[in-house]
Structure formats: structure tokens, C-alpha cells
Design a protein around this nucleic acid. Sequence first.
DNA 1: GTGTCCATTTCGAGG
DNA 2: CCTCGAAGTGGACAC
Lengths: 237, 237
Amino acid sequence: MRLVIAQCQVDYSGRLTAHLPWAKRLIIVKADNSVSVHADDRAYKPLNWMSPPCTLRVREPVTDEAAAVAGIDPRIDQVWEVDSAGGDHLQILLGQPDLDVTEDLGVDPGLQKDGVEAHLQELLAENPQAFGPGWTVVQREYMTPIGPVDLLCRDAEGCYVAVEVKRRGEINGVEQLTRYLDLMNRDHLLGDEVHGVFAAQQIKPQARVLAETRGIGCVTVDYDALRGMDHPEDRLF
Amino acid sequence: MRLVIAQCQVDYSGRLTAHLPWAKRLIIVKADNSVSVHADDRAYKPLNWMSPPCTLRVREPVTDEAAAVAGIDPRIDQVWEVDSAGGDHLQILLGQPDLDVTEDLGVDPGLQKDGVEAHLQELLAENPQAFGPGWTVVQREYMTPIGPVDLLCRDAEGCYVAVEVKRRGEINGVEQLTRYLDLMNRDHLLGDEVHGVFAAQQIKPQARVLAETRGIGCVTVDYDALRGMDHPEDRLF
DNA sequence: GTGTCCATTTCGAGG
DNA sequence: CCTCGAAGTGGACAC
């Protein structure tokens, strides 16, 4: 990993074109050749970047005399040309760096996550009573021609119910479930009419309204409580 | 902006929980107090981070003796505690740094962009003949109760057509246009039936199929050609 | 503030 | 390799 802090000007052309005027910024070159140009704000998002795979060519410093002949601004110390296979191009004009260090970081052991949608689906599959008494799970990731239904359940009366699980329930999730229900009921893949339930840790009001107008049930899920039901020994009382 | 390269262990808890085992990484603290932890790959995305606004507390180095008494790993040189208003928490255990520099970058003059969806919409508004001969634009960003239709047009026969403009046409865009059409035709906001056209630089096959089953036309747009039509003087022939 | 939608989204999984 | 859906999405803009 190489870190450079210097005055620079950046021009990108690819999916769009973008320009950064001359100013002092941080430039990161990672081991995967990716380049990112950071200002001192905007959290972790760079102002401009090139994603890997890409190649980086550095045109070396020129003498003042040669620069003058070529019409190059004498402030320019280096020119970086970054190219991707897709035709994207990033050009960075660099002044004298205030920092230029290279460090070998090695391979990272990687990030361990807990609490994403997959875990929520897993917990619900193990605790279908969260939907109501007598509910059972027929299958997780039940395949249809247009994609997998998160959970296929049966309610207390034995009716099939397709459950769409989301961390945050928004309109798109309702649309997605609606497409599954339309298909399953049009083709009578499961005989009787299949109902729908939209399950999420939080459901936006507009999504709830849309679901209800389509006869889809809404269930808000408490992840921590569900984890407690799943492993009662973890609870303190 | 402060750049630190050091062995570290990171734990995040907030919208999810995540853990990074002990390894050498880059840590960036920006002027907005945001913190990001980078490995030497994954383009510009950090492994872990805290978005502003947040506060950073640094617990100073302890002596080996004090560390032993407190049960702290003697490799630990500093402990950073980063907290956001939303209750998110990031803890970074740091070893002896290989790099620790602070640079003042000042305020960035900012990024200039060209070629995003707004420009595509603008070009299409100026060149409705891209949809067919005799087409006219009634209004850009035509407001409905559930959001703005990108372009409201009339075709050669004078029929209203709602046009949804996307850079890349995917299923969500078709759903979005469908909601507008459902509403406009249910409430007869414009008298006769309003048709729909889905216009994008590239349309995914599944989006195209969904659009066609709903009677929505698909138009793929060549941005550069359209720019050429708009400013013929820019063309070389 | 909430809601909606764009993004050079990035990223990962699955066919 | 493409396609699709999730993300600690973030950010801008309208209401």
C-alpha cells in the first residue's frame, strides 16, 4: 500500500466524466492496484477512484527546462495514468508530495459479520412461531422460476405462505414478494392459493400500506428477542 | 487528516456486529472525525468504519506493569473508542504504529461531474424524437402524488406517454414506472390512457421482459449520439 | 424530519 | 462470466 499526500488535479472518464481542480489530497494505491483520491471529509468515500483490475503508469519527473518546452506546468512532479479493462481512465497530475510512503500490509484475515439478512432468515426458519402459533417451515430458499422465496411456510390451517425476509422492509421488498405470489398462484405450483407475509426488523409505513392493499401480512421481527428464543440459555432470566 | 498504519483489532457494534482479528492495517481519521480501517485490497471500501458525526476518544499508552495488572495485552499501545449519536460503537485496539502522520488538507474545491442520469434526462427532453417521429415533451419531472415522472410526452398521435429514464434499466425501474402508470390511469389524471416507455442506455433482459409483459415500451439510448444530435456542431462530419 | 431515488454505487453469491 | 440482490449502503432533493 502506497500513501501519497500532495497537491493534485484529477480527471476521470468512463461511466461518466469528472474533474477535480488543483488541491491537496490523499491518494491511496492498494496492492490490488486500485487508486483512490480522498479529501479530508465525506467519511470513507473518495472523491475519485479507479477500481481493480486496473493498471497504473507513472510518468517520471521532468526537468524544469523539459517541462517548459513541453508546456507542462512546472508544479507538476508526476503524471499518473490509471486504466481499467472497461476503458475507464483516470489521470492524476501530482505536485511535490508532502508524504509518500509504502507499507506492506499482507493479506487480511477478513471480517466476521453477524446480524445480516441471512441470520434473520435463519432465526425465523428455526422459530416459525414468530409468525403465529402452529406455523411450520416447509423450506428455506424455495426456488421458483423467477428466484427463491426466502421461506415457504404453512400456517395453523395448513395453508402455504410465502415469506419474504428483509432487515428493513421497503416497497421493493413488497414488489418482490408480489411477483413470487403472482407466479405461484397463476401456475398453481402449490395447489391452493398461497398467501404472503412480509417480515422485517422494521417496516416502512408506505411498504406496510402497499402490502396490506395486496393482502400481504406484515410481521416486524425483534432480532435480539428471536435470538433469545433460539438459545434460551443465553438469556439472563 | 491522520494516517496510522499499525497492527490492530477492531470491533463494531451497531446496525450489525462485526469483528476484525489482529492484523496490520491502515486507519484514516478525517477532519470530520470519521474513522475508516483499510486492508490492502477491496478497492476503496474499508473493512470497518464510523461515519460522521462521531466522537473519537483515545486511551493513552499504559506501562507494561500497569497493563499486566489490568490484564491488557502488552502489544496494545492505544485503545480508540469511536461513538456515533445513533449508538454505534467502534473499538480499535492498536499496536505500535509503523506510521502515524497528521496533515492538514484544507477544504476541497469539490468534484465536477458530467454524464449522470440527470444529463441523460435533459438530453432526451431536448430530443424527444429519440422515442419516435412527432413526439413532443409536455413536462420534465411531472409530479404525481407518489413521485415525479421523469418525462411526460405525447406521441405522434397525441397520446400521453410517461417516460422513465435510467442510465441502466433494471427491474426496479419498471416497477417504478408501473406504479406511476397505475396511478395515472386509475385516477384518469390525463383523460385517456397513459402509455409507458422505459428509456435507458442499457436495459437488462429481465427488465425488458417485465416491461413488455406490462405493455411498456423499451428504448435504449445512445448518450454520445444524443449529445451529437443535440449539438451537431460538435460532430466531425 | 421523513420519504424517495440515484450511484462511476460496491460487494458477494449463485447459475 | 453474467445476473441478481444485499448493504452498517451513502447522499441529494422534495415534501
